[in-house]
Design a protein around this nucleic acid. Structure first.
Length: 579
RNA sequence: GGGGGCGUAGCUCAGGCGCGGAGAGCACUCGCUUGUCAGGCGAGAGGUCGCCGGUUCGAGUCCGGUCGUCCCCGCCA
């Protein structure tokens, strides 16, 4: 006896007359006392079973006992439905299975939530994830995820990349994100760190002559969870020898396009836009702008330099956004509150009504020239930020993102991919009072900018790049430093002595001294990519068993305390709640 | 660490100005029902209104705290 020889969702009118066996879950039952209808569901879809006590007495008796989510095995004949009984809502709705034998394979308790109900509390879904996974949404998302990842693997293979496994347990680093630590029984008091990424190993692979390395790698970072962040996540990790920036970007673009095609969707046109970091910040106030809409930030500093409006005249920078709506008094008050939360001192504005008439407390202070410059379409509002350039960028960037959401400016049918390029090499860390790397310490310096490493660290650009899709950062990469001397100077600029650098990254520095080819790569956040492909608002919806924001797993109850004996063997004692 | 939302039956929610017996739909149990597909009809069971404290004659409702969860800021090389 086989459990089944056919899947539920496959049957069509052509199958009428076949005798077959199906198995699956009870989606719903409709028990008429005599006739019993059961919608049987498997991973392919739903099929209606009809059990008639006059032709299958034992099967009918069993069918009366059936409840939701019982697992059944049904043998019978596929029959056509009468015209008045067709169900156009079901792919199998032209046929049904006239059951001859029915077996209850597995019973089910009443479920903690109903599978056909929307909006079930997410913690409950995660607590009973095996039930949640039976639902259409999760089935679809996990299959979509598989399809995209399979397309990526296929593409990487075609492009000559070799998948290499690298250690999860590796050496901790104080820089970057917090590490998850793994105690080592054989060496009590010592710890591995779970890899935040295979960064150093992938460079070693290429230095080791792999030429084209890739891996769908699991990474761990002990930072607060978000809609787009879990402790554990996957990266498409890529590294190429003898590569320039465009070589790397092309590989990633081909993976993106292949994923779209595998899902039967119109891929974004290649090449993707290249947007310099500086321009992204100026025009959109963000290094991961959503480019499905424009709403660009304009600069007015030159125009307002001699303004009669003191706030403008005295500000180091004056920039503005033109929102396509004439805001009301109360809307403007709310926007001003939001602007202040973003760091603005206030929010100046010009409202243009339906007739194009300007309404603003500051209009009377502005010259004809200024008003002409800011003049906007009827039914719009010009919003100004006047402050230090970095504050202006933050405020208008924040307002831009918020307005887009509130006014629904993003065209959901569009897919706006862009590379953000020419990032600064360093950024100033207020916390540490020194320069720190903006990407990571092995990021290449843009050719010609090496001299700035010492003389003007803030002015040097790097060979780093980010991939942005509809305002989500999908990943980042760079051409790496393959010159040991440049690497030493970078460490020096970061305030890291040679001894410290040797202690932390000695093995990489050594490798760089032994014939390192020029190389570069990228890391694409697979979970984010798949969530966006699936149209989901967070990565938990494409993750089989995710954790909640507090870092717990509602299903297993992890994390848990461990017995003292276990800790003792590892040389660990706990001090309770840290300060 | 900070800000905001949510927490009432197994699930999704209503009640929310303190007015006094805590409700609906689905799920569940029992009975009836031979063409349903959100099956129908009838009956029933099911509640620490997240938890603790306060105000009040009286708290699901007001106040304080706390826990859980979601979103955001910080953080995420």
């Amino acid at each position: 006896m086989s459990w089944r020889d056919t899947c539920c969702g496959e049957l069509r009118r052509d199958d009428v007359g076949r005798r077959l066996t199906v198995a699956g879950w009870v989606d719903t039952r409709r028990d008429h006392g005599g006739l019993v209808f059961v919608d049987l569901r498997d991973h392919t879809g739903v099929l209606q079973l009809v059990v008639n006590p006059e032709t299958a007495r034992e099967a009918a008796e069993a069918a009366h006992q059936v409840r939701n989510e019982f697992v059944l095995r049904a043998e019978g004949e596929v029959v056509a439905r009468a015209d008045e009984n067709l169900n156009p809502n079901l792919p199998t709705g032209a046929v049904e299975l006239r059951v001859e034998r029915l077996a209850v394979v597995s019973r089910s308790e009443p479920l903690p939530f109903q599978l056909d109900e929307e909006g079930v509390d997410e913690t409950l879904r995660l607590r009973y994830r095996w039930l949640d996974l039976r639902r259409e949404r999760m089935q679809r998302n996990l299959r979509l995820s598989h399809t995209a990842i399979a397309a990526i693997r296929r593409t990487m293979d075609e492009l000559g990349f070799v998948e290499v496994w690298t250690p999860s347990m590796t050496k901790g680093t104080p820089e970057g994100a917090r590490d998850f630590l793994v105690p080592v029984r054989l060496q009590p008091g010592r710890f591995f760190a779970l890899a935040q990424s295979p960064q150093l190993f992938k460079q070693l692979c290429v230095i080791g002559g792999i030429d084209r390395y890739y891996q769908i790698a699991t990474c761990w970072r002990d930072e607060d969870l978000r809609a787009d962040r879990q402790f554990e996540f996957r990266q498409l990790d890529v590294e190429l020898a003898f590569a320039e920036r465009e070589d790397v970007l092309e590989v990633l673009e081909r993976c993106v396009v292949a994923s779209f095609e595998a899902l039967g969707r119109e891929p974004p046109p290649r090449p993707f836009a290249r947007l310099p970091y500086r321009e992204a910040m100026l025009r959109y106030g963000s290094d991961k702008p959503d480019l499905r809409f424009d709403l660009a930030i304009e600069d007015a500093t030159e125009v307002t330099r001699g303004s009669g409006f003191g706030v403008f005249a005295n500000a180091p920078a004056v920039r503005y956004l033109t929102a396509p709506q004439a805001f009301s008094r109360s809307e403007l008050e709310r926007l001003e509150r939001d602007a202040k939360e973003l760091g603005a001192k206030g929010l100046a504005y010009l409202v243009y009504d339906e007739e194009g008439q300007v309404r603003s407390p500051i209009a009377k202070f502005l010259s004809e020239e200024e008003l002409a410059r800011f003049g906007a379409e009827p039914a719009s509002t010009v919003l100004f930020a006047a402050d230090r350039p970095d504050v202006v960028v933050r405020v208008l960037g924040g307002l831009r993102a918020q307005l887009a959401k509130e006014l629904d400016l993003a065209d959901r049918r569009r897919d706006a991919f862009a590379w953000i390029v020419d990032f600064p090499l360093f950024e100033w860390s207020e916390e540490h009072g020194r320069w720190t790397f903006s990407h990571h310490p092995f990021t290449g310096v843009r050719p010609g900018d090496e001299e700035w490493i010492e003389s003007d660290p803030g002015g040097a650009l790097s060979e780093a790049y980010d991939l942005v899709w509809n305002g989500w950062e999908l990943g980042s990469g760079s051409i790496r430093i393959h010159d040991q001397d440049v690497q030493r100077r970078i460490f020096a600029a970061l305030g890291m002595g040679e001894e410290e650098a040797e202690e932390k990254f000695g093995f990489l520095l050594e490798a760089l001294r032994m014939g390192a080819p020029p190389h570069g790569g990228f890391a694409l956040g697979i979970d984010r990519f798949v969530a966006l492909l699936a149209g989901e608002p967070n990565i938990r919806e494409v993750t089989a068993f995710p954790k909640v924001a507090s870092g717990s797993d509602p299903l297993t109850g992890a994390p848990t305390a461990m017995p003292d004996a276990v800790l003792r063997e590892l040389g660990i004692s706990t001090i309770g709640q840290p300060q």
